[in-house]
């Protein structure tokens, strides 16, 4: 209750700022007075609920509107488009002002596109099946090394697997999360690495005998997986977006949104 009040207050404040006029984003957006935001096609739980970002339900949908409001846009001034990962990074003009679909910030990606300040630090989590746990798999690195691994090929799970887990056998990689789940069901892989919220959803909803075996918390990791808003390289909007995110972080709004949509994350054992 208290949390909801705080975030409502924050929204009110941002609306007040917008009314003051002459805001930072003026003339820098794709279309005047409209903030065009892209997300995945489809967008997944718990990032966007029911693939409907305009409902503001879901972590990333809520973040998107919070950022927009803080930058001085009314809810009605937000337009949504869809894009794939490849569309987001291909050269040429973008059809969005910013794009959020769990893009991890990496130095290499920064050379091609711009990222905002991070809006979320993701823990990486291990999803597996109950029979694998029954077979003796534990939340220790030594035990994890012996498993047959899978991952979504275009996520930072791939380098993290290689750096942190260093599995004995080469992991199998897939084009999307649904295929990772399918391979796990077919017993072709023992476990998959994915960000914690996705892992929780996958284990609980997409699988019958799914288990989140453990997590690598972001603060324990040397290069924590941080999500940023993706923008065209050199987009002048970046300073406005960064300012809005810094603001949202400072006044606790981001933490409140995270608590509302990603609250279940506690209670997953930490892997040593």
């Amino acid at each position: 209750m208290k949390l909801t009040m705080t975030s409502s207050l924050a929204l009110l404040m941002s609306a007040g700022m917008a009314l003051a006029g002459g805001h930072c984003a003026a003339g820098k957006t794709l279309n005047d007075d409209v903030l065009t935001i892209a997300t995945g096609n489809p967008a997944y739980y718990p990032w966007v609920m029911d693939d409907a970002p305009e409902s503001k339900a879901g972590f990333e949908a809520a973040v998107a509107y919070a950022v927009a409001n803080r930058m001085g846009f009314e809810d009605a001034q937000v337009a949504w488009v869809r894009s794939s990962f490849d569309q987001a990074i291909q050269p040429g003009a973008k059809d969005f002002d910013f794009n959020l679909q769990q893009f991890s910030i990496t130095p290499e990606r920064e050379e091609i596109v711009d990222f905002s300040a991070p809006y979320y630090s993701a823990a990486m989590a291990v999803v597996t099946r109950q029979p694998v746990v029954d077979g003796g798999a534990e939340a220790t690195l030594a035990s994890l090394k012996g498993l047959l691994w899978g991952a979504h090929a275009s996520t930072t799970a791939v380098p993290m697997l290689a750096e942190i887990v260093q599995p004995d056998r080469d992991p199998l990689l897939y084009g999307d999360n649904a295929d990772v789940v399918e391979a796990m069901k077919a017993n072709q892989i023992d476990a998959a690495l994915m960000d914690l919220p996705t892992a929780l959803f996958t284990a609980a909803v997409l699988m019958d005998d799914g288990v989140v075996l453990g997590q690598f918390p972001p603060e324990r990791s040397e290069n924590p997986d941080q999500f940023g808003l993706l923008m065209e390289e050199g987009n002048p909007l970046k300073e406005c977006v960064d300012a809005a995110i810094a603001d949202l972080a400072a006044d606790g709004t981001l933490a409140a949104i995270e608590a509302e949509w990603l609250a279940e994350a506690t209670g997953v054992p930490v892997i040593d």
Partner: peptide, 21 residues
């Protein structure tokens, strides 16, 4: 590569997403 094996096309896809290139 669609069902798991990391052959050249998948490896290129991994590099693509890591390097955004």
């Amino acid at each position: 590569s669609f069902i798991g094996p990391v052959e050249i096309f998948r490896q290129a896809g991994v590099y693509k997403s890591l390097l955004a290139n």
